[in-house]
């Protein structure tokens, strides 16, 4: 982790949602300035509708910003070359229900143009890593929510990404598997990867994030290292609640 090397930078990033036939507008992200360093675990925190998912979608090039600048790994996010180095786990797994675990990972592996031999080895490794070895041939539609989540986590790592964006990675997982996922995230950091974590589970964020940003109504409320933001004896949860209440008032 080094402040010299910036993985993601946004400057005055704004996204306004407009509906086609009415003047109703929603400012989902409002003048957001973020800097995420290479090799850190960065927590993107905020209540529902605070603009976390919209920010992630912009970082992935899925949404066009209304105004402002975005650079992901030094390039505009809609460039295909950037996506080659990103792994992404969405809020829900959004997998193809008619494919099984092997087919799912093979499909996403092909999208990254991973050679067959390497692809098969990675599929095998990831299936074992997320504990789906027994269910590798079962179609996803038969999976429990936790199993689908684990497969979603595996597909996010199929390309050995430099930047990993995880939206609620532990939701729907039992405590045991959630612990395993957290260990994997810490392990990935040790391998030098940058991780963005969007989560409601503040206790998790507190234990594994190096820095966090708290968003509310699309605006950045607080950003900094977890250790620096917290007063002695304060938890991230209390800080979060205080920040949101202050913003509302």
């Amino acid at each position: 982790m080094s402040p010299d090397k910036i993985a993601i930078k946004t400057e005055n990033l704004t996204k306004v949602y407009k509906t086609t036939f009415s003047r109703y507008q929603v400012k989902a992200v409002d003048n957001l300035n973020l800097e995420i360093y290479e090799g850190e675990i960065f927590g993107l925190l905020g209540p529902n509708g605070s603009g976390k998912t919209t920010t992630i979608k912009i970082l992935l090039g899925l949404l066009f910003p209304t105004s402002g600048l975005v650079r992901v790994l030094g390039k505009p996010p809609d460039e295909v070359i950037v996506k080659d180095r990103i792994g992404f786990l969405p809020e829900e797994s959004y997998l193809y229900r008619f494919l099984n675990a092997e087919e799912t990972l093979d499909f996403y592996g092909r999208l990254f143009r991973i050679p067959r031999k390497e692809r098969l080895a990675r599929i095998d490794h990831l299936i074992k890593l997320v504990g789906l070895d027994d269910a590798r041939k079962r179609p996803v539609k038969e999976y429990s929510k936790g199993m689908a989540r684990r497969l979603g986590f595996a597909q996010a790592l199929i390309n050995d990404p430099a930047l990993i964006i995880l939206d609620e990675p532990t939701s729907g997982l039992d405590p045991l598997v959630a612990r395993q996922v957290k260990d994997i995230i810490l392990d990935l950091q040790k391998q030098g990867k940058t991780i963005i974590l969007s989560s409601h589970l503040l206790a998790d964020a507190e234990t594994i994030c190096n820095r966090v940003a708290i968003l509310h109504q699309g605006q950045l409320q607080k950003m900094g290292a977890v250790k620096e933001l917290l007063q002695p004896g304060e938890t991230l949860e209390t800080l979060f609640l205080k920040t949101i209440q202050a913003s509302r008032s």
């Binding site: 992935l60 090039g61 070359i81 996506k83 969405p90 959004y94 999208l111 597909q155």
Partner: peptide, 14 residues
């Protein structure tokens, strides 16, 4: 609608 595109277009696919 099922947001599968969300995941698909996050990959290097135009």
């Amino acid at each position: 609608e099922l947001k599968r595109l969300f995941l698909l277009l996050a990959k290097p696919v135009t």
